[in-house]
Amino acid sequence: MTGPELSEITAAVDALEGVALRTPVLPLTSARWDGVLPDCASVTVKLELFQQAGSFKARGAYLGISQLTPQQRAPGVVAASGGNHALAVSWAARAAGVNALICMPRATDPSRIAGCQALGAVVDLFDDMAAAFAAMADAAAAGRTLMHPYEAEHMTLGAATCGFEYAAQSPHVDTYVVPIGGGGLISGMACAIKQLAPDAQVIGVEPFGADSMSQSFQAGRPMRLDSVDTIADSLGAPFAMPYSFGVAKAHVDRIVRISDAEMLRAMDHYQNILRITAEPACAASLAAILGPLAADLAGRHVGIIACGSNIGLARHQTLMQGLR
C-alpha cells in the first residue's frame, strides 16, 4: 500500500480546481520570530486552516462525496466526528448537493456544532463518541454512505493534493513536519512529496497521549491505544488502520512526539505573532520544530503545516489558561 500515483494526484488537483482553495504558504521571516525558531536555513508554514470548512479534510471529503453514484447520493452520507471532519463533510456534502447527517458528542465545541448546521447538515448529538459512532453505523446500515475521517483512499488522495501543492509552492523545502491523527494527512502528503522530491524528509508529529501511529511504526502493524489523553482532540485517533498506516509507513521517515504543554506554547506563538487562533492540532508542527526536532534542523529548509483550526474563543481561552 504505497498510495496514489502522481497521475492520480494531479487528476485530483484538477478535480478540486475552483472548489478547494490553494492555501497560502508564509515564510516565517519577521523579526518577531527571532529567538523563537530553531537554527534552520528557513521555515515556512502552509496555512491550510484557511481551507474550505477550516481544515485540509475538505479536500478528501469533497473527492469522496463527488464520486458517489446516483444510488449512493439519494440517501446521503453520514459521519461521526466532534471536529474538523464533521465540518468538512458538511461543507463537501453541500457543495456536491448531497444530504449529510453528522453524529457528534454533546461535549463538542459549540462553534463546531453550529458550523455544521450552518452548512446545512443535520446534526444529532449523543452522550459520547462511542454512541455517536454507533449511530453512524446504524445510519450506514440503513443506506447512507459512511465517510470515514482517515481510513479511505479519497482522504489520503485529498491530503496528497495538499502535499503536491506545498511542494510546488516551496520547492526549496527539504524537511516537512506534519501532524498525525489517524494518518490521513501524513499518508497523503508524504506520498505526494516523496514522488516530487524523493530526497526530502517527511517527519510526523503525534501527542504523547495519542501516539497510535508511533506505536504502529514500532510494531510494524496498526496498533490500538488503551486510552487517549491529549488536548488535541483532532489528533486523538485511538487506533491506526491498515490503509493509512501502510501508506504512511512507505513514505514517512520518522515520527516524534510532543506534549500538550508544547502545543500550548506553539498556540501562544501563533496567537501573539501571527494573530492566528490555533487549535492544538494546528500548532503541532510548530511545537515539534520548537521542541523535539529543534536540535536536528540546523541548515534545513523546513516546511510546517497549520492543518486546520475550528475552535471557539471560549475553548481557546480555557486551554490557554493551562499555559499561565
Rank of each mutant, 00 (worst) to 15 (best):
R254I: 01
A121I: 02
A12Y: 05
G181K: 07
P75M: 10
T161N: 08
A141W: 08
A58G: 08
A118C: 03
S170G: 03
R112V: 00
L49W: 13
A58I: 00
I311Y: 04
Q271M: 13
A121G: 02
L21A: 08
Y270E: 07
G64T: 11
D253V: 04
D229T: 13
R94V: 00
G163N: 05
T29N: 14
L290I: 12
P110M: 01
N84A: 02
G76A: 07
R265T: 07
R112S: 00
V205S: 11
G83N: 04
H148R: 07
L119K: 07
V178N: 10
L157I: 03
A250E: 04
V77D: 14
L87G: 10
A298Y: 11
R300K: 15
Y270I: 00
Y62E: 08
T318N: 14
A250W: 11
H316Y: 15
V78D: 10
T318F: 07
P280I: 01
I304E: 13
T108E: 04
V302W: 13
P75W: 14
E153N: 10
T2G: 09
P4L: 02
A31H: 09
S309F: 02
L21S: 08
Y243H: 15
V205T: 07
D268C: 08
A141V: 04
D128N: 15
A11I: 02
P222V: 00
L323H: 12
G204M: 06
L16E: 07
L157T: 00
L47W: 09
Q321N: 05
V202A: 06
M189P: 03
A20I: 02
A240M: 12
H85L: 02
A88T: 06
A130Y: 13
R59F: 02
V43A: 14
P242R: 05
G312A: 00
A114H: 10
G209Q: 15
C162N: 10
A288E: 05
E279I: 00
E8C: 01
A131L: 09
Q169V: 01
H301R: 15
A11K: 12
P75F: 11
Q169T: 00
A298S: 14
N272V: 06
A281D: 10
S42D: 13
V36L: 15
G115I: 03
D127S: 06
L47F: 12
A190R: 07
S7Y: 06
G60R: 11
R94G: 02
A240P: 12
T161S: 06
C40L: 10
S214H: 14
A107G: 03
M263Y: 11
G236D: 05
A190S: 15
G120S: 04
V202C: 07
D14R: 14
T277F: 10
G60C: 05
L293H: 10
A283N: 11
C191S: 13
R73P: 08
P105A: 05
S30A: 14
G246S: 10
A107T: 09
A210S: 12
I113G: 01
P280D: 05
M1V: 04
A278V: 03
Q72D: 15
M136H: 12
E279D: 06
P222M: 01
I9Y: 10
I304H: 13
S90V: 01
Y243G: 03
L293R: 10
L119M: 13
L323S: 09
E165I: 03
K57W: 04
